[in-house]
Nucleic acid binder design. Sequence first.
RNA 1: GCCGGGAUGGUGGAAUCGGUAGACACACGGGACUUAAAAUCCCGAGGAUGGCAACAUCCGUGCGGGUUCGACUCCCGCUCCCGGCACCA
Length: 820
Amino acid sequence: MSERYDAHTIEAKWQARWASAGVDAASDDPADTRPRYYCLVMFPYPSGNLHMGHVRNYCLGDAVARYKRMRGFNVLHPIGWDAFGLPAENAAIKHGRSPAEWTWANIAQMRAQLRRLGLSYDWSREIATCHPDYYRWEQWLFTRLLDKGLAYQAEAEVNWCEACHTVLANEQVEDGACWRCDTPVTRKRLRQWFIRITAYAEELLADLDRLSGWPARVVEMQRNWIGKSVGAEVRFPLCGRKDALTVFTTRPDTLMGVTYLALAAGHPLVQERAREDAQLAAFVAECARSSTREADIETMEKRGMPLGIEAEHPVTGERIPVWVANFVLMGYGTGAVMSVPAHDARDFAFAQKYGLPIKQVVAPVDGEWDLAQGAFCEDGVLMASGAFDGLDSATARARITEWLEARGLGKARVQYRLRDWLVSRQRYWGAPIPVVHCPECGVVPVPDEDLPVRLPTDLRPTGAGSPLADCDAFRQTRCPRCKGAAERELDTFDTFMESSWYMNRYTSPRNTRAMVDARAMARWAPVDQYIGGVEHAVLHLLYARFYHKLMRDLGLFTSEEGGDEPFVNLLTQGMVLKDGAKMSKSKGNTVDPNALIERMGADTARLFTLFAAPPEKDLEWNDAGVDGAHRFLNRVWRLQHRLADWPEGASDTAACKALRFAVHDTIRKVTHAFEHGFAFNVAIAALMELANALQAFSVAGVHARAVFREGLEALVTMLAPFVPHFACEMGERLGFETMATLRAWPEVDEAALARDEVTLVVQVQGKKRGEVTVAKDADRDAVLAAARADAAIAKWLDGMDIVKVILVPGRLLNIVVRPR
RNA sequence: GCCGGGAUGGUGGAAUCGGUAGACACACGGGACUUAAAAUCCCGAGGAUGGCAACAUCCGUGCGGGUUCGACUCCCGCUCCCGGCACCA
């Protein structure tokens, strides 16, 4: 009975028991009437080694899943592998193994590491995205998108990472560099595959308002990323030519103030002129160079050149010059802007530099504006705008847009910053894009019966281009339409394609008939609680929302079955830091989870990870803190020995009552943490307080022993979501009839929280001057009388008149006085 | 530049609705046990001033104002830090 806490023996024992009892599986039995809960953590890339970020992520998810089970929910808590991706290829080049071999070996290794942490996953639903049974459905979906015109091939200026030797989507470029390897991204014109996420821009934006369970900043980041702006398209006919320039503006109210047009260097009209003008060509070439160095854009000087072309103002017919300017982007709007120097700071600076006219057409609502102080960029009242004079900016925007529309000179338009998702990659280790290039029929989607298009798994990338190009068995095929010789598409999908729908696949992971099963979706989706790093705020989390809507609109499930959004609640956990910096091999500040588990056990690792910081904040690793967590478990462990020879005698009922109060107050606090915000650091602190109270409780007698036992059992039960092995072992020794992790969550006994007496803080003038203990329902006069009876308080009332007395029941009494 | 979030002891952090600031833990100091150490247990601790001490008083949640009987919490104005976006027309 007095043996010591031995984490390794206990952990191995319970992991085996849980596995053989199958306690972690989610039930698909229709007869199971328990309420359902879907808890999901972002699945890992199988690098082969678990790091502390993973540990934190999965411990958070596991605590939630286990708590919900104890609350009587049928919990879906799955795990799998985001198994395609570049590191596998790089490792394959380095170690001479195929990416497939390398990946599957890593999966085996990481699976073992996760199991050692004692995470309660439903392993029967494990998926790996590199498995053809998985990516087959993504290929299927893509062919449907092709049918609907939502997927297309186009030549475009794209982001190219030289180190990864592939293109990147806009979301995957951070600060002008590749999100994965930090290599500066260059621009290239290439023919690539896109998915029309812009067709869903409005819904993706509007539904952000429904994500009340998401952190505000993630919602805000997505809103920024989608970047909606409402305005108008305006046509400016070109003088002496048949064509016209179309610009996009959010300020049609300033139309009368346009004094020049500015075009991007990449604009077709500029390109055309540059062929005849060497000076212009040199300028354009310079712009093309500098545009790749996005970090410098901020400090870049605004420069331009006249094109020697004039355009006609659509209202006044005035001739206005057309310029090329280095600050106009080809990729946004129409690549052309109307410049209104009087009402735009950037246009103002440009006009001043090149001596272009500045014409004020909007005045502040209350007064004058002196253009010497710069541009007036606010809304105001129109002036010098003919028929539109006197209108406020908002009305003028609508009227002027209507005016243009009526004359075919423009129209209202909404512009988004979001661009279509570039999904093709010039890499081998990814899901093949299911199309065939036929010399006769062109691009032909692979028909359903020929799916999946299997990726050959035995190829060895060398680093010089995709090995698929040299694999005739893959490359050469027959056209599904004309049956003639044809070639397969050699690009593979962006790996974000796989991670965009895995949460839905988990609901019916072995489904061979469809991508997902509508009934299973109705049972589980959407995810109730999603947990992962904030770094995916506009990558994975945006793509997944988009994919969910695509799947819905393809009829895989309805809004009622699967919801319109994949994740109801999102928790973005902070990073794990050491010495104030993110752990990394190059900095040499890593903590190896395996070594930690080896030394202290999984439960200690879990406990410290959850205790050291609130989940959404960064966690500073502290080895001494880990020792502290281990000490705590030892202390709780020893509490059980107290039951063996409890001293006889008469119990002190007041002390027993105080302990019961502490027990039930703790239940209240810990439950609150699980139900509101997952502040596990606070929950664990409360459990530590309870352990301290139990340890300090030294009252003799059978009643006291029973009270102590109740407290210890509650403590062990509430520890189960955090340190499940420990709790199960303690529970078994305490004689629990079921495993601690399967017990019902303790209920608060309100009677235990009732008190006959309360201690109130007494303030004079809002400053604490003492405490009084009074009957629970004592009224203001009674409390005041008690306060005056206390010498330490009374001395502050000497020579004073009491002006006012405020009683906050159960908390405090504040006496407001005035010198007599 | 714009949009978020934050700033509390030596450290990580707590404080439910405006009601005892610093829970819990780490680190530290003192003590008990021990031949000794480890382990364990007990005690102390925001700062300043006075006092042998118990204790007392004042100050204190980035800075300056305000509202309130009462402000870490609400309002106004700043400073700094972190994150995101950014010639976006």
